[in-house]
Design a protein around this nucleic acid. Structure first.
Length: 925
RNA sequence: GCCGAAGUGGCGGAACAGGCAGACGCGCACGACUCAAAAUCGUGUACCCUCCGGGUAUGUGGGUUCGAUUCCCACCUUCGGCACCA
């Protein structure tokens, strides 16, 4: 047999050749075809920062592979690409290198297009959309006008982040780190008040909390749910000494009787009126101090409470108690009503405040019975401590540091007795809830912070020390003015000290008190959110101008739709002055009012780039369309997005904004359905080989261009899908990619080498076909489920099997051709070039990417023989090979008579034999 | 502090109904080819005990079960998000 020379695998040559061919043929053009089911696969669009990095590849390649899989499954697949091209880096480049943002951006796009093409992805480039094109931002502005017309956009004075060193405002993403410093110069940012545009995202808060009908990761749903932060409770109307209503929001209306003081945010409108003459100086000084402080300092980690008494009082509507009104910066004007009723017995912050300023603490919720508490015992233990716990029936766990124990309230006495006998040292300590409690030998106790320690010790000294041994710790606490163990987690206790409500069970307390408040007109059911309205104004040049005018006669006037787009001027100055360069332009903002014809000025702020990215999936549908933001025919066919892939970091920004956008547009009749993206999947992050985040300064950056040059796109693609769980990511490994490279080279030669001759036995052929179809089944499932790493594993495993089968003479069998055919089809979504090349070299018709996904031949995949595991008492003792359809009786009999089992039974009688069909036999003796 | 996710060989990871723990790959060791090296191919590779054969292992400690990486409870660690949100 003569051997044909096998061409070398030369990915560089193959890949560019096929990419050109596909491009020329328009192979990946997606057009409306009502005959076929559609699939809109969307990957988050990149920012044109200059170079495509490995993270882009990691996000896009598996998305591409899955889109290709769906295409082979018979779907008409749309997989578009574009650029999120407005934004700060372009302006920073302008400032630091004097390049116009537009020039910088479009140069980068040109480069990144080339890099994106090197992926060999099935992007339909005809649908490319670039958010900084006037034809794009014309519609971004149009959406703004729509939102404004529907009362979802409004203007309000609001604080923005301000860098006092650069003398400029900063966007949220320019503020870095825990100390919230300026991205460029490191100076901590402060706040500055400016007129800003907002979108009413809060109007959709409740709907955004619902994820009905969409398949989004639990993680993202949780992040969004927490971000929106819905709290149910009650509004309660207190009355000030001047008969003003002072409304508070509380999630715990059942603790209303425990309110011993009130706290207002320093900015609260009633502060001035409430302040008494003798407190005025102090109050004003405090307000001045908090105004000067930035939010950062206000929210600083040291939770030491500050505040000032206003001298004013308010009346609790349910019990007429007259309580002092304080101001403190721990109450935020931006949440609820900017005022709280303080219940120090049941709120940690109010408690700290009360301790610091000596305000009364009144418990109104009783300790629930039987509530398990965890204790950790530290310090030296005498021998026998653990044994004593054990004999008292107290379950504990031991680690290197000490003992952890979980007790119900009924077990505390027994525990304390043992602890007293067996613990060394002058004091011992334990954790109540999550706080350290120190119990001293003299019977006194105290907890955690030095400040509170003093206070509490003072209170407890009033107790009779001799009584200490007879009391449990909890009783000690109840002897004080409060219960520490119910403090802050008293959800299920009964109400006490609450007038007619005393005795009400914790499960009913909130609802009953709220109903009472509503009947009496003293309050009502209320809901609050942490979500704030979306601030979209940016004092920046490189963004879509906000299409609004200010007219001396008519006030705020929207730019008429037919005057869109409001285009950016190109001749602007790049000085970081804190004002938008648009504001400093000599003529740009001067215009006429469309209503009165008089002089008007343009809004010089531009829109947050998240506005552009909230609808790019709609522009992709028809970037060529000029009569509207999208062609309705394209919309009706393609939307909604079926699969959306991208990073988790957008969970509380882009992914909330785009949902809000879709819902708002739905209510205007622009979009249809409740959600824009049906299925969401997030990839993890590729780290450097040192397991650190890739960064130029660390020198651990892996550049995809270099990898493609060294290995070819197919190898990089397969490795990125193989090396880690896609949703996890992980460190890059330069050794790991070699393994994938080897695999593709082995495939190349195995597919092309001449048949070695010989004839395969029936069993070899049978086994080959079984493996092929079992692999197909697994690969199909894993593509469906986004489990990309096991797809590659399965293909590697199959190649190993095929290699063996060929050595056993299977190369000439029809089953071999079937195996290669199915193999290449399964590989096509992962490695589009090598599969296309081999497909062609084997004489199959162009293109493999127009082939359908093979179907599993269930007969071929079926196992005739299976290996049963035989266990004795759950331990593996033998394996037996039996027919797959063996009966339970036969299986048990075979197992019992097997050699390994006979040895272990040693004549004993099994009293139970469990048979799990196709799996195992377990003999219990 | 609160919320969420995750802990499996030297490493990435697999185990898809509670049923053979460690697939696949990297790395490592040995062998073949070679004057030699690289490449390639082959064999081995959780740990302990004496080779047959056992024993121990999926963060720790309990529990449920004939049987637990998988389910339940508690704890520890790591990562991510939020962070005075009343």
């Amino acid at each position: 047999m003569s051997s044909i020379s096998v061409p070398n695998y030369n990915p560089g040559e193959i890949e560019s050749r096929w990419q050109q061919r596909w491009e020329a043929d328009g192979l990946y053009h997606a057009n409306i075809d009502v005959q076929r089911p559609k699939h809109y696969a969307l990957t988050m669009l990149p920012y044109p920062s200059g170079d495509l990095h490995i993270g882009h590849w990691y996000a896009m390649i598996p998305s591409d592979a899955r889109a290709r899989f769906m295409r082979m499954q018979g779907y008409n697949v749309l997989f578009p690409i574009g650029f999120d091209a407005f934004g700060l880096p372009a302006e920073n480049a302008a400032i630091s290198r004097n390049i116009h943002p537009k020039v910088w951006t479009y140069r980068n796009i040109e480069n990144m297009r080339r890099q994106l093409r090197s992926m060999g992805a099935m992007f339909d480039w005809r649908r490319e959309a670039i958010s900084s094109d006037p034809e794009y931002y014309r519609w971004t502005q149009w959406f703004f006008l729509k939102l404004f017309a529907h009362d979802l956009a409004y203007r309000k004075m609001s604080p923005v982040d301000w860098c006092p060193n650069c003398n400029t405002t900063l966007a949220r993403e320019q503020v870095w780190g825990e100390d919230r410093h300026c991205e460029r110069c490191g100076t901590p940012v402060t706040k500055k008040n400016l007129e800003q545009w907002f979108f009413k995202t809060t109007q959709y808060a409740d709907e955004l909390l619902r994820f009905d009908g969409i398949d989004w990761p639990e993680r993202v749903r949780t992040l969004q749910t927490n971000w929106i932060g819905r709290s149910e409770g009650a509004a309660v109307y207190f009355t000030t000494q001047d008969e003003d209503v002072l409304e508070v929001f509380t999630t715990r209306p059942d603790t209303l009787w425990g309110a011993t003081f009130m706290v207002l945010a320093p900015e609260h409108p009633l502060v001035a009126k409430l302040t008494s003459a003798d407190q005025r100086a102090e109050v004003e000084a405090y307000i001045q101090q908090t105004m000067r402080q930035s939010d950062i300092q206000r929210e600083a980690a040291d939770k030491d409470k500050t505040g000032v008494f206003t001298g004013g009082y308010a009346v609790n509507p349910v019990n007429g108690r007259r309580i002092p009104v304080w101001i403190a910066d721990y109450v935020l004007m931006t949440y609820g009503t900017g005022a709280i009723m303080a219940v120090p017995a049941h709120d940690e912050r109010d408690f700290a405040f009360a301790i610091k300023f000596g305000l009364p603490i009144l418990p109104v919720i009783d300790r629930p019975d039987g509530l398990a508490k965890s204790f950790a015992v530290a310090g030296s233990m005498r021998a026998g401590f653990a044994a004593a716990l054990q004999s008292a029936g107290l379950a504990y766990t031991e680690d290197g540091k000490g003992i952890s124990i979980s007790l119900t309230s009924g077990q505390i006495d027994a525990y304390l007795q043992i602890a007293r006998e067996h613990l060394n040292s002058g004091y011992w300590n334990e954790v109540v809830g999550s706080r350290w409690v120190f119990v001293f030998d003299n019977g006194m106790w105290a907890w955690e912070s030095p400040d509170s320690e003093v206070r509490i010790l003072a209170r407890c000294k009033e107790l009779e020390p001799a009584a200490r041994p007879a009391r449990t710790l909890m009783e000690m606490l109840s002897g004080c003015e409060f219960y520490r163990d119910v403090l802050f987690h008293a959800e299920y206790g009964r109400m006490i000290n609450s007038g007619e409500f005393s005795g009400t069970g914790g499960d009913r307390a909130k609802a009953e008190v709220t109903a009472y408040l509503e009947r009496q007109g003293k309050g009502k059911y209320a809901v609050n959110y942490r979500l704030r309205d979306w601030l979209i104004s940016r004092q920046r040049y490189w963004g879509a101008p906000i299409p609004m005018l200010f007219c001396a006669q008519c006030g705020i006037v929207p730019v008429p739709e037919d005057q869109l787009p409001v285009t950016l001027p190109e001749d602007v100055e790049w000085k970081p002055t804190g004002e938008s360069p648009l504001k400093l332009h000599p003529t740009w903002r001067m215009t006429t009012c469309p209503q009165c014809g008089g002089r008007a000025e343009r809004e010089t702020d531009t829109m947050d780039t998240f506005m552009c990215s909230s609808w790019y999936h709609l522009r992709y549908l028809s970037p060529w369309y000029h009569q509207g933001c999208f062609d309705p025919a394209e919309y009706d066919y393609w939307m909604p997005v079926d699969t959306y892939t991208g990073g988790i970091e957008h969970a509380t920004m882009h992914l909330i904004y785009t949902r809000f956008f879709h819902k708002a547009l739905r209510d205007m009749g622009v979009t249809k359905g409740d959600e824009p993206m049906l299925q969401l999947r997030n990839q993890g992050m590729v780290l450097g080989e040192d397991s650190e985040k890739m960064s130029k300064s660390r020198g651990n950056v892996v550049a995809p261009d270099n990898l493609v040059a060294a290995y070819g796109s197919d190898t990089v693609r397969a490795y990125l899908m193989f090396y880690a769980r896609w949703d996890q990511g992980g460190p890059w490994s330069s050794g790991g990619i070699e393994g994938v490279s080897r695999w593709l080279r082995r495939l190349w030669s195995l597919a092309l080498e001449a048949t070695a001759g010989g004839e395969a036995s029936e069993a070899v052929v049978r086994n080959l076909r079984r493996k092929v179809h079992q692999t197909l089944r697994a690969v199909t499932r894993d593509f469906r489920d986004f489990e990309f790493n096991t797809i590659i594993s399965a293909l590697m495993e199959l190649l190993n099997e095929m290699s063996k089968a060929r050595q056993q003479g299977a190369g000439a069998a029809p089953a071999w051709n079937e195996a290669v055919d199915i193999y290449l089809r399964m590989l096509a979504p992962v490695c589009p070039h090598i599969s296309e090349e081999l497909w062609q070299l084997l004489g199959k018709p162009y293109s493999i990417h127009n082939q359908s996904w093979p179907l599993v031949d269930e007969d071929a995949a079926r196992e005739e023989e299976i290996t049963l595991v035989v266990q004795v008492n759950g331990k593996l003792r033998d394996r037996i090979v039996v027919a797959a359809d063996i009966s339970a009786e036969d299986a048990k009999a075979r197992a019992l008579s097997s050699e390994g089992i006979q040895r272990h039974l040693e004549g004993r009688d099994p009293h139970q034999v469990i048979y799990v069909a196709g799996r195992l036999v377990n003999i219990v003796i």
